[in-house]
């Protein structure tokens, strides 16, 4: 196969684990089997412990606005190891988890913080890789 096509295929596969559509925290808490379908057709379930942790970190009024899974945007453009969290409720939750003041609707985090987030929220967060 042409190397060019192989690379393109590989790049397409890189984000195949992302959800077809995100669901809100409120929906996930109501669901009997909380989770989302991914682009590659598999089911990605959310841990109930994590959902309850998220509901404690965010005011009830914002449960409908927090989209799950929270996407951790890994971008080489920002330098190796840097990642971005986008969305106001998402930034609020992650800031609370990291013990930081929440500001704006975009939060830049670094590898040690990504490790903390992933160890606390392994199913309710997902990596996304962008150029």
């Amino acid at each position: 196969m042409d190397p060019e096509r192989l690379i393109e295929k590989e790049l397409a596969r890189l984000n195949a684990h992302l959800p077809r559509a995100q669901i809100s925290l409120a929906e996930a808490l109501r669901s009997e089997r909380p989770g989302v379908e991914t682009r590659d057709g598999t089911f990605h379930s959310f841990g109930r412990d994590e959902l309850s942790l998220l509901s404690r970190l965010l005011e009830e009024g914002m449960w409908g606005e927090l989209r799950l899974p929270i996407i951790i945007w890994m971008s080489r453009g920002m330098g190796s190891g840097a990642a971005v969290i986008r969305g106001k409720p998402e930034v609020r939750v992650i800031s609370a988890l990291l013990g930081r003041p929440a500001e704006g609707s975009e939060l830049v985090i670094y590898r040690p913080e990504v490790a903390v987030i992933r160890s606390r929220l392994p199913t309710t967060t997902q990596y996304a890789f962008t150029r």
Binding site: H17, T38, T42, F43, S45, G47, Y127
Partner: peptide, 14 residues
């Protein structure tokens, strides 16, 4: 259940 980690389908047991 299952979870998807960067394309790897992993088991989840509550």
């Amino acid at each position: 259940s299952t979870r998807n980690l960067m394309g790897i389908v992993l088991p989840v047991i509550e």
